[in-house]
Simulated scan of single mutants.
Amino acid sequence: MDPIGQHGKGLDFSCRGQRALVTGAASGIGRVIAEALLDAQAQVYVCDVSAEALAECEQALPGVRTARADVSDAGQVDAMFARIAEDFGGLDILVNNAGVTGPVGPIEDNDPAQWERNMQVNVNGMFYCTRRAVPMLKQAGGGAIVNTSSVAGRMGYPGRAGYAASKWGVVGLTRSLSAELGPHNIRVNAVLPGTVEGERHERLYAERAKRQNMTFQEAEALYTTQVALRRFVTPRDIAAAVVFLCSPAARNISGQALGVCGDVQYMR
């Protein structure tokens, strides 16, 4: 069925019956993405490193399935996909959302261990999950992969070089996989959030305020002036973009790095 419908009516933004995995999704942005996919009538598997957060997620979201896994560990990822194959019998959607912030500050002060962890989760984790998901998507006759990058994946980010490097890597992986997997009817896109309301970015404001000898409010205002719309995005904004990219309405969208940022003009 044409998802557009006659005269543009009846747009299909649902994910009805689709089997989805969202990584790093027991809390934060990933949790909201999982909720949105459930609302779009998908079956959803959630993975996270926190057993406590997963237990709370199971209680709050009836019907969701969970697996404790660190995506930077290939063995744990393999075990998770074995469970998904047993429980779901396959996969139609992969949302590679798990990520860490990485080291903050001048490059000469970056802790090598934090740098390595940043790359292991943000880049290696996507590889480990994608390599296991692709055979399932091919078997299903196609599907969608959405990778969480960042506005830092399209511009420089002083004081956050490791994070930016990893998120540029996500965009490169996305565009390469789109070309590779397109013939198998697998669409691959990335979403690039800007400054997102919530505790994670509040910690960044506090860190910047401390480094630059300013108040928390001054640091927050500094981030706001970098955005054309002069406001931050919400997790729901990001989730809406992910559901759209997974839905039949986006059936011809692939290889794109979609900014969900209010048009960030620069980063400092």
Rank of each mutant, 00 (worst) to 15 (best):
Y157H: 12
A85M: 13
V123R: 02
Q76T: 11
A161P: 12
G194K: 00
N97V: 08
E116A: 15
E202P: 08
L137F: 02
M136C: 04
A133M: 11
T130V: 07
Y163Q: 08
P135T: 04
T101N: 15
G141I: 09
L94F: 11
A79C: 06
T101K: 11
S149G: 05
A82H: 14
V151I: 15
K167C: 05
F127S: 00
A113K: 12
G142M: 10
S149M: 02
R200N: 09
V71T: 11
M119Y: 14
T148D: 00
T174C: 08
V95S: 02
C129M: 10
D111Y: 04
A67L: 13
R131D: 03
A164R: 03
R200Y: 06
G125R: 00
G159A: 06
S150R: 00
A98D: 04
R117W: 11
M80Q: 10
M155D: 02
R117I: 11
G153N: 03
H201N: 14
N185I: 09
V151G: 02
F88V: 07
A67H: 15
R160V: 06
K167W: 03
L173V: 11
V171S: 06
A165V: 14
A140K: 02
R175G: 06
P183G: 04
V71E: 03
M155L: 10
L177Y: 09
Y157P: 06
G182T: 09
E202S: 09
S166N: 06
D111K: 11
M119N: 12
V170K: 01
N122M: 05
P193N: 00
G153S: 01
N189G: 04
R187N: 00
A164W: 04
V196K: 00
V191R: 00
N122A: 08
V104C: 08
